[in-house]
């Protein structure tokens, strides 16, 4: 293999920040409200029951800890809309970009020529709103796999077939 070592002007390369990102489907916000609402509700009722039953632990400790936890879960629920607006994605010619996270904001970029396979997943609440998640798998292990939630089912299918045509195209080259 010939070894090339040309100078590359880094500033002239395509820039991940110079793109217009797509928002997720508006219905997905409702899905976040429902799932976050249900989990907080279940956990809070669990904490309340535990706080009443665990009589061995001193009262002050018991109520302060459970109070803190309850506030934490209410906060967790109240962040729903912010969480939704923090998520966005973009598709470029050669890769897919997904941004998410409030406390930790992260932007993951998966090049099409490293994708092993793609999958469409849809839970019961998702199905009610006609939404799907697109899962993209690479050889980088579970942490690097990308899950793009809250896409309209049609869009998810279209993006998936686009990605697959791209990966197939890359192999032919």
């Amino acid at each position: 293999m010939e070894f090339l070592n040309e100078q590359i002007d880094v500033k002239a390369l395509p820039d991940i920040t110079a793109i217009k990102t797509e928002k997720l489907s508006a219905n997905y916000l409702k899905v976040i409200y429902i799932t976050r609402g249900l989990t907080s509700l279940i956990l809070i009722s669990g904490i309340v029951v535990a706080a009443i039953l665990l009589k061995d632990i001193p009262v002050t400790l018991r109520f302060s800890v459970s109070g803190l936890l309850i506030i934490l879960f209410i906060w967790f629920f109240s962040l729903s809309s912010k969480v939704f607006h923090a998520r966005s994605y973009a598709i470029r010619q050669r890769d897919i970009i997904y941004t998410r996270g409030l406390l930790f904001k992260s932007t993951t970029i998966v090049p099409f020529n490293r994708i092993q396979h793609a999958e469409i997943v849809s839970g019961p609440i998702d199905r009610f709103y006609n939404l799907s998640s697109l899962k993209i798998f690479t050889a980088g292990g579970s942490q690097s796999d990308l899950s793009l939630p809250g896409l309209l089912s049609n869009d998810a299918a279209r993006i998936k077939s686009f990605i697959i045509s791209k990966t197939a195209h890359d192999e032919e080259e």
Binding site: G101, L103, F104, K105, S106, T107, T108, I109, V110, P111, R114, T138, A139, G140, S144, L146
Partner: peptide
């Protein structure tokens, strides 16, 4: 395989 930027 892929790359990510993370910010607290």
């Amino acid at each position: 395989q892929s790359i990510a930027l993370r910010q607290s």
